[in-house]
Design a protein around this nucleic acid. Sequence first.
RNA 1: GGUCCCGUAGUUCAAUUGGAUAGAACGUCAGAUUCCGGUUCUGAAGGUUGGGGGUUCGAGUCCCUUCGGGAUCACCA
Length: 596
Amino acid sequence: MIESTIVENTAKAINELYDAEVKIQDIGLQKTRKEFNGDFTIVVFPFIRYSKKTPQKTAEEIGDFIVSHDEIVEKYNVIKGFLNLTLKDKFWKKFFLDNKNNSAFGFTKHFDGKPYVIEYSSPNTNKPLHLGHIRNNLLGFSLAQVLTANGKKVEKVNLLNDRGIHICKSMLAWEMWGNNETPDSTGIKGDHLIGKYYVMFEKRNNEVVNKLVQRGLAQEEAEKESPLLLEAQRLLKKWENKDAKIVSLWKKMNAWAYEGFSDTYDRLGVSFDKFYHESDTYLIGKKLVQEGLEQGILFEKEDGSIWADLSNEGLDEKLLLRADGTSVYITQDLGTAQLRHDEYDPEQLIYVVGNEQIYHFEVLKIILKKLGRTWAGNIYHLSYGMVDLPEGRMKSREGKVVDADDLMDEMYNTAMAMTMELGKIDGFSGQEAEKLYRIVGLGALKYFILKVDPQKNMLFNPEESIDFNGNTGPFIQYTYARIQSVLRKAVEEFSYNPAGLINIDFSFIQKERDILRIIYEYPAIVQQAGETLSPALVANYVYDLVKEYNQFYHDFSILREEDHNTSIFRIELSVFTGMVIKSAMGLLGIEMPERM
RNA sequence: GGUCCCGUAGUUCAAUUGGAUAGAACGUCAGAUUCCGGUUCUGAAGGUUGGGGGUUCGAGUCCCUUCGGGAUCACCA
């Protein structure tokens, strides 16, 4: 690595020139910013206390030393306290020739160590997926790709929240008012059908509560005493007691939900290695709670409910089992974590879950630690912010959720309309055209969401996302398709042979170097995205690359360049660029069209 | 009220994890190109990084304080 050589030489320079020891990690090496000349930059401010000279003078002395000791460094310049080093062309040539045909460029090959388990999606089975789930799914899937690219062993897991009061509500509503409707009988997608009954329950329950309030009950009291809710709670209790009739209804309705989810996942292009069911893991959680109770780590209240006292941690008491013995959300999460630890012994257990559950995961970790699970420290909650729409906050209670399937339909239709108007898809079969609409529509959606730092709340603007200009998925796809078009023409027009450019003579102009420099960064970007668990870094990187390439494409000819060797080089540089674009977008789960 | 997160151009987002004159995109205005694919590219305008202190060679980034927005503190998940 040239970087480490430069850093070592810098340390050596300081040692020999100023007789001081500097730690390697204290030497700040960064890529040179665009507006200055050079490839790498060393910040010399920290060294002036050794040199006792001005930053300018210090930088010059170190620069001289490096140039005379490192045969890859051609020259340097100093601006303020910044030492900018320029590498020789032969370095970039070698980099280019070594990597241009390596489709795994930027990736670490071997798996090392324990697996990384990523939980994402984790839907409730009582309603279909919405926009928030989309961000979750895209993040989880992309992270898995990024970690795999970093040579990690990755397990993608999905926890189906298939039990609890919520699904009982859907079940109750369906039993009371469903007239035995099924996905088949209605033609409604399974998860949507269940969602219909969940909404129906909430609506009727509200009506009942309102009536109780009118009769003089306090709101809170009315909510607790609503006969509908009480009935749902009875269902939950029956379910935990394995009442055959309830269990069979539960199985039937959950199966509908799973079919629906499966369709949505396929369409979204995400997948899982393993599914966990809360209905299995809550029992393990109960066992853990029992264990903690026996060891005196947890305590029981008079009504029989079981709690954890977290006051030493500055938190409240936390309920773990209700008085009636049924378990709550965190109970099953304790069990799920234990199960995963037993099965994978993971290096890291990553949960992709919205930031409204930060407290939940904090509590989860504390309780596990109290129970003696030292591996609780490997739990990492990747929390992400809300997704808003231009129309304003979506609020599920107001029924204003943006349904995942509907949104994908909308993106698909917009992609189709735009392609009809602008596309060069003559000769596409119906199937090919449909595939293209899917790729472009989804690419727009995915890119727009993933380019934002996960932690932040964001605004999804469907119109802007699918714009063919600007920092969007389709713009990147377009650039890629255009490169492929150039390549096709190159093969047709002067029978370009992709094995070409091995020993031919070629030299760079500045713009070509600029592109190479950005490509050179790719491996570091992949690594950084893995370390910080942020696909957004990859998204923003690929846009920078595309922008640089488009400037080049605009200003210089590729196929019409008179010098044949230059022409060949530019074709190959374009192909290399295309390869990295495709690779980076692949990490985001976004496909590239050959034509669009 | 306690805890946590977020405040960056009109808007949506960046900023190499403490480094140079805080950058892109959309929109606006002016121009070049109209040729390998819709165009693409260049330039202009737009900022007291919510405000105020502090830490040091250096702060959007770290600390304190204050204001604004959000989340959470459920026998919902």
